[in-house]
Design a protein around this nucleic acid. Structure first.
Lengths: 143, 143
DNA sequence: GTCTCTCATGATCATCATTTGCATTTTAAC
DNA sequence: GTTAAAATGCAAATGATGATCATGAGAGAC
């Protein structure tokens, strides 16, 4: 299911370049929230070379337009092509990020933090050990 | 209410140096989750000078020992002397971080993310406009 | 107090993630 | 095709943070 990314007209004209197509396609092709660097390496292996700066520039641009989510945390930023409301689990051992579902989204969206605070959204991140790392407790780190 | 920070004996001996006293006191004296740099500037103004490297070293050391919390996000890390369970609100405009309370902590601690996942904790961060920034929507950024 | 052994500090340099400047190439529109 | 604005690639610049290493300072033994 290849979801097209369109662009509402704001700011300078948007050009659908070869690099942008490749970057978006690569990101949408995986569900593991890669870093810019990881995406860059993937593309480098392809015939469709893209510079690291361009990967960063385009990922940030897409985030600015709300087409991607940017996940902060220890280590480099990760990017999530799924902008629908959902939460994440970060493995403390291998650093990988997984999607998770909970039933609290509606409630948390309505939280009142007191007078004067305008809440526009929230992030919920669980952390612990992922199945792989829990199983191989004494083993090696998996990238 | 000046809370003492003690240390359980693990690793090399802990020396209660002048710099450590000053850093901890400065951090506990504020509730606004400062960055290492902000803390450094505050101390620089004092007669009790401390190098930036030492500020970082000691903040990280205290985090490692669970005496402080480290808040990730856009911009440099912030530090919270309050390690009791609570959540945060980050102003998208000025970047400041505020403490918030919700009634979901117990429930969220018990969330089951599926077989194999060992959940050790979670972070919940709300974002939006703080009272100051909401009021002065067209004004300047406040640091 | 003072000796001494570690550990901590300060200053600088190194690194990692990311951004930016700029000359060159592409795209989208005519 | 021509053309102007926008995007790219590369390299150098940043910003936040960690590491190195010679020097300084706690803390316990005497």
């Amino acid at each position: 299911m290849q979801m097209m990314i369109m662009r509402d007209e704001v700011g300078p004209a948007w050009r659908w370049t070869r690099q942008r197509k490749v970057i978006v396609a690569a990101l949408q092709g995986r569900t593991d929230h890669p870093t810019a660097e990881e995406l860059y390496h993937q593309l480098k292996a392809t015939e469709a070379q893209v510079s690291l700066a361009t990967v960063y520039r385009n990922l940030r641009a897409l985030v600015r337009e709300g087409k991607l989510r940017e996940l902060k945390g220890p280590g480099p930023d990760r990017f999530d092509p799924d902008t629908s409301p959902h939460y994440h689990f970060r493995c403390s051992r291998c650093g990988r990020v997984f999607d998770v579902e909970t039933r609290y989204r509606e409630e948390l969206n309505r939280v009142d933090l007191g007078p004067g605070f305008q809440v526009l959204g929230h992030e919920l991140v669980f952390w612990g050990l992922c199945p792989d790392c829990k199983r191989g407790k004494e083993g090696e780190w998996q990238g």
